[in-house]
């Protein structure tokens, strides 16, 4: 494992790279339980506690906490699930979409929370697992509704296309709908979080290095670098919320596509 620039401070500037995402184990020598693992557990506790507290004393006239909890729930229930899946089938998917959105959102926001500052989703395995769940759900729902062959036909044969072009279209549709969808879904989340964290590392570590270790007037360049780090932190907050929203929106769209009737 390469030295972490926050721990080992050498006179040479160590440019941030993918080695910054290999964090040391927390307990003993277990490579399994590292900071991302701890953050995953923490996010589950945060999300569960917040909504448990918000829903515990539900009254007809909501208090502040209940109002916030209901607003958060309504956003996913109406803004994503009902609008995308349609008012007939959406209720079955609300618990999954709701949990998914707030799980991803909290894990993303860890990237800019002071003292934590590590987006869990910048470890690609987490994103693969979440996209895998989505893949199983939208394929499973489609197979249950249309049957196995019916679902394959539903998802790979576009309606209203002349027959002579189908040999070309069916493989493309199969690759794009079955194989590439989970890949882009997970990589989009992962790469956004990864690139965002890397961007912040460049500005913060580079700014700190310039300010404290550079020669002469070059030190002044550290000040705009750190100010830009602040600006990019707010930009990252926007990206993190947006990516959580897009992840859930696309999951809902895939489910809606599987549920759609034949044309």
């Amino acid at each position: 494992m390469s030295p972490h620039p926050l721990v080992v401070r050498s006179e040479e500037f160590v440019a941030p790279g993918s080695h910054d995402f290999d964090l040391p184990p927390i307990l003993g020598n277990s490579e399994f339980f590292t900071k991302p693992m701890l953050l995953l557990l923490l996010s589950v506790v945060i999300v569960a506690t917040f909504f448990w507290l918000a829903a515990r004393k539900a009254t007809i006239v909501p208090g502040k906490l209940q109002f916030a909890g209901e607003g958060a729930y309504t956003f996913v229930r109406n803004g994503v699930a009902r609008d995308v899946i349609g008012s007939r089938d959406f209720m079955r998917f609300v618990p999954w979409l709701f949990a998914l959105f707030y799980f991803v959102l909290v894990n993303n926001l860890f990237g800019i929370v002071p003292l934590i500052q590590f987006p869990t989703m910048s470890k690609v395995g987490v994103a693969y697992a979440l996209a895998g769940v989505t893949w199983l759900i939208f394929n499973g729902i489609g197979i249950r509704k249309h049957g196995f062959l019916g679902y394959l036909r539903h998802t790979t044969v576009p309606a209203g296309v002349p027959a002579y072009i189908l040999p070309l279209l069916i493989p493309i549709e199969f690759i794009s709908n079955i194989l590439v969808r989970p890949l882009t879904l997970s990589l989009r989340l992962f790469a956004n979080m990864f690139a965002g964290h890397l961007l912040l590392l460049v500005f913060i570590l580079g700014g700190e290095y310039l300010l404290l270790h550079a020669e002469g007037l070059t030190r002044l360049a550290g000040i705009p670098a750190l100010l830009l780090a602040l600006v990019f932190t707010f930009f990252e907050a926007l990206v993190q919320v947006l990516q959580a929203y897009i992840f859930v929106l696309l999951s809902a769209l895939y489910v809606a596509g599987s549920l759609a009737e034949e044309h």
Binding site: T184, R188, F194
Partner: peptide, 11 residues
């Protein structure tokens, strides 16, 4: 999101 996916794959 779909247009961005191309940049993400490149990344």
């Amino acid at each position: 999101a779909l247009a961005e996916a191309l940049a993400i794959l490149g990344f």
